Amino acid sequence: MPIPFVLASQSPARLATLRAAGVDPEVIVSDVDEDAALAHAREAHLASGLGELAFDDSVLVLAQAKAEVVADGYETQALVLGCDSMLEIDGEILGKPGDPATAIARWQTMRGRVGVLHTGHWIVDDRPGGSGATVGATASTTVRFADLSDDEIEAYVATGEPLHVAGAFTVDSLGGPYVESIDGDYHAVVGVSLPLLRHLLGACGVAFHELWRDSVRG
């Protein structure tokens, strides 16, 4: 039997990535108020004299909040993984655009340029007799975008795909042709870094293969 594992995210791409790696997590979506969680973290960071909260720390704050809310608010008794992603370009964050006009404007900014996709990961070990660990880290990957024409941008946005994903793009679906190259972990751009997840599981005393579904095991 695999070790119980919960994904605290509604991202289909994260779920598909984990399933392709042999893991079938239970999905429990957190109800975290992301704006409030970030505002609180930023205030605490400034009050401690550490200055502004960095983008790679911001995604970690949200990943931790999601994992902890699910671990504390549900009878999980499992390893709980929370994730969050943000795209950084020129010192600014481009999150989920939410509407077509914003998505078009984002792509007009992104085309032909390079950004950094930050994906925070946080695990809470909520298992009875488990390690009790709560650990996290961020994977940051450089992404070079194609120089799209206005027609290409409008056609892509019209599919609806860019509206509800960080940075208004995917690399594993319709947005794939518009990503020229990646420097770093491909899976982190999709939504969950499998190598980083392996390291975080190790900090909980768990090997990645212990999450594999029974049909994968030899």
Rank of each mutant, 00 (worst) to 15 (best):
M1R: 09
P2Y: 08
P4E: 14
F5Y: 11
L7A: 11
A8P: 03
S9P: 09
S9T: 02
Q10E: 14
R14K: 13
R14P: 10
T17H: 01
A20P: 04
A20G: 11
G22K: 11
G22F: 08
V23D: 04
E26D: 12
V27Y: 05
V27W: 01
V29Q: 11
V29G: 08
S30Y: 07
D31T: 13
D31E: 15
A37Y: 06
L38A: 10
L38C: 05
A39P: 03
A41T: 08
A41K: 03
A44W: 00
S48H: 00
G49L: 11
G49P: 04
L50P: 00
F55T: 08
D56F: 03
D57C: 04
D57L: 01
L60K: 02
Q64F: 01
A71H: 05
A71K: 07
D72M: 10
D72K: 06
G73K: 06
E75L: 14
Q77G: 12
L81T: 08
G82N: 11
D84W: 01
S85C: 14
I93H: 06
K96E: 13
G98I: 11
A105R: 09
W107A: 04
R113Q: 12
T119N: 08
G120M: 07
H121A: 10
W122Y: 14
W122Q: 05
V124G: 01
D126T: 02
R127H: 09
R127Y: 11
P128Q: 15
G129N: 08
G130R: 07
G132F: 10
A133M: 13
T134Q: 15
T134W: 04
G136F: 09
T138Q: 02
T141A: 09
F145A: 03
F145P: 01
A146G: 00
D150C: 05
D150H: 06
A155T: 08
V157N: 03
T159S: 09
T159P: 01
T159N: 04
G160H: 13
E161Q: 12
P162D: 10
G167K: 01
A168D: 04
A168E: 07
F169G: 04
G176H: 12
I182G: 04
D183Q: 13
G184E: 10
G184W: 08
G184D: 14
Y186W: 14
Y186P: 00
H187P: 00
A188V: 10
V190E: 08
V190C: 11
L194W: 08
L196T: 02
H209G: 00
E210L: 12
L211Y: 10
L211Q: 10
L211G: 06
R213W: 13
D214S: 13
